[in-house]
Structures are given as structure tokens and as C-alpha cells.
Design a protein around this nucleic acid. Structure first.
Length: 354
DNA sequence: AAAACGTGGAT
DNA sequence: TATCCAAGTTT
């Protein structure tokens, strides 16, 4: 079966059309013997989990400028790394990033394992990321199966089983095609094909190096693949957030628990997000409901937070959280939902002063 | 094994 | 406005 699919044709296409990415060693440099820094491959792969290239670029540049090596990252303070990750989402990735960096330094002499199994044993590295690092950084012939590859394989072989049930079948198809001569280039080539040609909507079949072999195209079902199981509706949750500003300009903030939603991130103290009537503000103060709510949608629910503000004196003693001076508080350290709250609250304070 | 876990851009 | 989607992992 797989004889009909020409992996060399894909590599030829990649040689001409590879995307230029900050973490990538392109096909020309690879042919000259260059290999990417495993640290940068790992960092980029973790950032790219469920996240677009466009969103990752800036974060990758900032992280590598601040922490050029895995040892630098391992030595960083948790709060600094979490703050730098703020806005990118899926914050367990940042927590695991630190765990992984420290494990590589403490347990592997600062060098990443060069096998899929060795990589899989590290925090935050699953089947996809382990295969990607092994292939891209170490040229091991591992099959990388991400969302791009799932889409390409489902179409190429006309696999109509809905995801995620189709994963074993798709994985087997991907493994059959893995290229022995240029594993790193091949892995990136399939993903580039999915990202730029075999796209979710309006795929450019006319310029696809695998057009002739594509069973989905022959059957005229490319637009319907891959099939996906229906998604559940997102419920609406309600809560309250409290933004206190001290007379010296300090803000009352709280470090969230180290697991679960927004775990380890900075945020405004508030109620549980269950619309319970009996929540207490974090501080005795003249709270004012600003009459606006921050709206935010997470993966599995919609959230509306009512925003309350207060200006308090220098002796204010909060029951929760701590005051951070303007010098110690960067709004960019906040996850997006908390930044929305801050923007609304700041507008309310500004209105008061005018 | 199903659910939890973020966000921004495109349609 | 609502939905889909993006280089998935963990529990």
C-alpha cells in the first residue's frame, strides 16, 4: 500500500517550501550537517502543544533570550517563569517545563535524553513530543503524530473513523511512512504539509506532492476528513473578583494553587466560580461593584466574573493574598482572564479620578 | 478512558 | 456571536 506514497517527493517539496521558524534548522543547513539545539527543540515543542506558531514565536524569543540553556531555565524562579508564560495558556506546561529542566540538569547532566523512551520519562513530554524531539534533534526515525499528521493521514488513506477512535489506525499509517534517511526533515515536512497545504479548510490539493496517491481526494471526501466525535456544550459559570489598590499604589494579588485551572499563576482573589451567594471578599473595605463583568471562555466552560474594586489605606490587612508594589507587579504576568479583570478595574479607578 | 486543561485568530 | 481549530499531556 505505502509504495504508492512517495516520501522522497515530500522531502523534495520540503526542500523548497519549508517554513522558516526560529527554532528550526532548515533543510539546507541540515544537509550541511547542522543540528538544532535539543533545548530549543524541546522548548518549542512544548510551547507548540495545542498552540499556533503565530502565538509561540514571541514567547520562544523571550524565553531563549532570558534563559539560553536548560541550566539557565532550571535555575530560574518559578514565579518568573510562570509570569513569562502568562497568556500562552495550558499552564501545566510551564509547571512541567520547570520540572523537566530541573530533571535534565539534576538527572542527566544537563543533556536531554536522545531516545523516545528516555524523553517520554520526563515531565510534560508525551508520545508526540518525545517522538518529535527524537526525530528533529537526534535524527531518530520516530513517527510524529500531531494534529497535522492526523489530518494528512486520514485524508491520504481515506480513514473515516472519527477521532479519537481513529488514533491507532492513523498512528500505524504514519509509522509506515516514517523516513529512514532524513527522519528529522521528514517529521517536519509532514507537519508543514498539514499546516500549509493539507489545511483543515480549503486544502490546496493542486500543489500537494501526494495528490496522486491521496485516497481521500480520489473519493472526494477531503473536506470531510478527519471526522471528529461531537463536542460537548460548555456550561456557564459565574463568580466574583476583587481588585484592591492600596494608597501607595500596591495591588492585592494572590498566587493560585499549584495545580488545576490556572495553577501556579498570579490572580485576583475572588469567589469560587460556582455562583455561590456566600463568598467573602479578601479584605474588609468599601467594595464597589463596578457593574461590569469579565467574560472569558475556557476549554470546557464559559466564565463571567463580576468585578469589585476598593481603595484602601496603608494599614489594610488582607485575609488572603498579598500587596505587590507597582514595581513588583507586571500586568503581563497575569493569565488572560485575570488581565481582563484588571483592565475593567483599572478603567473603573480611572473613572473615579476624573 | 473520559475529562481537565487556555488562548487568540479565522470563518 | 458562535464555533472551530492549533506541533498534546496528565490524571
Amino acid at each position: 500500500m505505502s509504495e504508492a506514497v512517495d516520501t522522497q517527493a515530500l522531502l523534495d517539496w520540503y526542500d523548497d517550501h519549508a517554513r522558516e521558524l526560529p527554532w528550526r534548522v532548515g533543510p539546507r543547513d541540515r544537509a550541511a550537517g547542522w543540528r538544532p539545539d535539543p533545548y530549543r527543540v524541546w522548548l518549542s515543542e512544548v510551547m507548540l502543544q495545542q498552540t499556533t506558531v503565530a502565538a509561540v514565536r514571541g514567547y520562544f524569543e523571550r524565553f531563549t533570550a532570558l534563559w539560553p540553556t536548560v541550566a539557565d531555565l532550571a535555575a530560574a524562579e518559578d514565579a518568573r517563569v510562570m509570569g513569562e508564560w502568562a497568556g500562552l495558556g495550558y499552564y501545566a506546561r510551564a509547571r512541567n517545563l520547570l520540572k523537566c529542566a530541573r530533571a535534565v540538569v539534576a538527572g542527566h547532566g544537563g543533556r536531554f535524553p536522545d531516545t523516545r523512551d528516555g524523553l517520554m520519562a520526563l515531565p510534560g513530554i508525551g508520545p508526540y513530543t518525545a517522538a518529535a524531539i527524537a526525530a528533529i534533534a537526534f535524527d531518530r526515525p520516530e513517527a510524529v503524530v500531531d494534529g497535522n499528521v492526523e489530518r494528512v493521514m486520514a485524508r491520504l488513506w481515506d480513514i473515516r473513523t472519527p477521532l479519537p477512535a481513529a488514533k491507532p489506525e492513523i498512528g500505524a499509517a504514519a509509522a509506515r511512512l516514517t523516513h529512514d534517511a532524513r527522519p528529522g526533515d521528514y517529521a517536519q515536512a509532514v507537519m508543514d504539509l498539514g499546516a500549509t497545504v493539507c489545511t483543515p479548510r480549503a486544502p490546496a490539493c493542486g500543489i500537494c506532492p501526494w495528490m496522486e496517491a491521496c485516497a481521500g481526494r480520489a473519493a472526494g471526501v477531503v473536506a470531510e476528513l478527519p471526522a471528529k466525535a461531537p463536542k460537548k456544550a460548555r456550561p456557564l459559570r459565574l463568580g466574583h473578583a476583587y481588585v484592591a489598590r492600596r494608597s501607595d499604589g500596591a495591588w492585592l494579588l494572590e498566587r493560585r494553587a499549584g495545580r488545576g485551572l490556572l495553577g501556579g499563576m498570579l490572580g485576583w482573589p475572588g469567589s469560587d466560580w460556582d455562583d455561590a451567594p456566600d463568598h467573602a471578599p479578601p479584605l474588609e473595605a468599601g467594595w464597589r461593584d463596578i457593574g461590569a463583568e469579565a467574560r472569558h471562555t475556557f476549554t470546557h466552560f464559559h466564565l463571567r466574573l463580576r468585578v469589585h474594586v476598593a481603595e484602601v489605606g496603608p494599614d489594610a490587612a488582607p485575609a488572603r493574598g498579598e500587596f505587590l508594589s507597582p514595581a513588583a507587579f507586571r500586568p503581563s504576568d497575569l493569565p488572560t482572564v485575570m488581565r481582563k479583570v484588571f483592565d475593567l478595574a483599572r478603567g473603573a479607578f480611572d473613572t473615579d479620578m476624573s
